[in-house]
């Protein structure tokens, strides 16, 4: 694992000044650069966290004034904020559950079954991820607008826009990401374990719940986590499909025109810490369950 490609080659003795220069790049400049790049990536997050402790007393949260815990003691103390956060959580939870179920079913079919039309299917799954979000939002909005002219739909199915249309949109953009995550995790799935279970007399249902499901569970959780974080952060698709309903990102956007209340940084920090915590936790659990096959083969190579 440690001695990968270029490092191994570079470790050989070599003398020319050019090669010494190259070693300096490898030894100092590249690590320093990586450190700076990671710091650059983290900077806005650190700013967000720091400014959640800012005492703005009614002024905009753009300049540092003094340390205060006020916002942390009253994180929902802004009119409309509690509702927005609740809506966001509800949309994220529901869209994650539904998209994960739909996506896992597709993923299972893709990895474990032969069927015709695979190419077209791959394209249909790829396209929503390759479409700019604004086009996804606009096209759904045009569907919802046009649906008012369709007499076969009960009135108010899609229009006026509401919580329901946000949910429809979030499920849509989440499905593809779930499929891609599951497919990556199912590659090299040990089919022989299922066959062994069947040979030992288990039926399809028992085999699925006792063998297949526990094996795909880490992948399912990873996919669900991705779907949840995409949903809770979405602004662009939501703004086109929300109508009067407000999610947390819509609230932020509305607030930034008047001046951002500190509470937004507090909620942002809480979401960030929770997401990072979940990822770390799931990694720890996954590592404990079984050694990562990629890591294991890496060890064998080295």
């Amino acid at each position: 694992m440690a001695a990968t490609g270029e490092a191994m080659v570079r470790a050989r003795p070599s003398g020319t000044s050019w090669q010494r220069g190259r070693r300096a790049v490898g030894r100092w400049i590249l690590p320093a650069y990586t450190f700076l790049a990671v710091a650059f990536l983290a900077l806005p997050v650190l700013i967000m966290i720091a400014f959640s402790f800012n005492d703005t007393t009614g002024r905009s949260n753009l300049n540092w004034r003094s340390f205060s815990l006020d916002a942390w003691l009253d994180p929902l103390g802004q009119p409309g904020l509690a509702e927005a956060v609740t809506t966001s959580l509800a949309v994220a939870v529901l869209s994650t559950i539904i998209a994960t179920i739909l996506g896992v079913l597709i993923g299972l079919a893709l990895v474990r079954h032969r069927f015709s039309g695979r190419g077209a299917l791959n394209l249909l799954i790829f396209l929503p991820m390759a479409t700019p979000e604004i086009v996804l939002g606009v096209s759904l909005l045009t569907l919802f607008l046009a649906s008012t002219q369709w007499t076969f739909l009960p009135e108010g199915t899609f229009f006026p826009l509401s919580f329901r249309t946000i949910l429809i949109a979030h499920i849509m953009f989440n499905i593809s990401y779930v499929v891609v995550t599951i497919r990556a995790r199912l590659q090299g799935f040990p089919r022989h374990l299922e066959e062994a279970a069947m040979d030992l007399g288990a039926n399809e249902w028992t085999t699925f719940w006792r063998i297949t499901f526990p094996l795909i569970l880490p992948g399912v959780l990873a996919a669900a986590l991705l779907a949840f974080s995409l949903s809770i952060d979405d602004y662009v698709v939501t703004v086109f499909t929300s109508g009067p309903a407000t999610t947390f990102p819509l609230f932020i956007y509305g607030a930034q025109q008047r001046g951002i209340p500190v509470q937004i940084n507090v909620i942002g920090t809480i979401i960030f810490v929770a997401a990072v915590g979940f990822v770390l936790l799931s990694t720890v659990i996954a590592n404990r369950q079984r050694p990562d096959p990629v890591e294991a083969s890496g060890e064998a190579d080295a």
Partner: peptide, 13 residues
């Protein structure tokens, strides 16, 4: 990890 923070909040930062 930074991308677990809202897109809008990062841009506002």
């Amino acid at each position: 990890a930074p991308f677990f923070t809202s897109f809008l909040l990062r841009t506002l930062s």
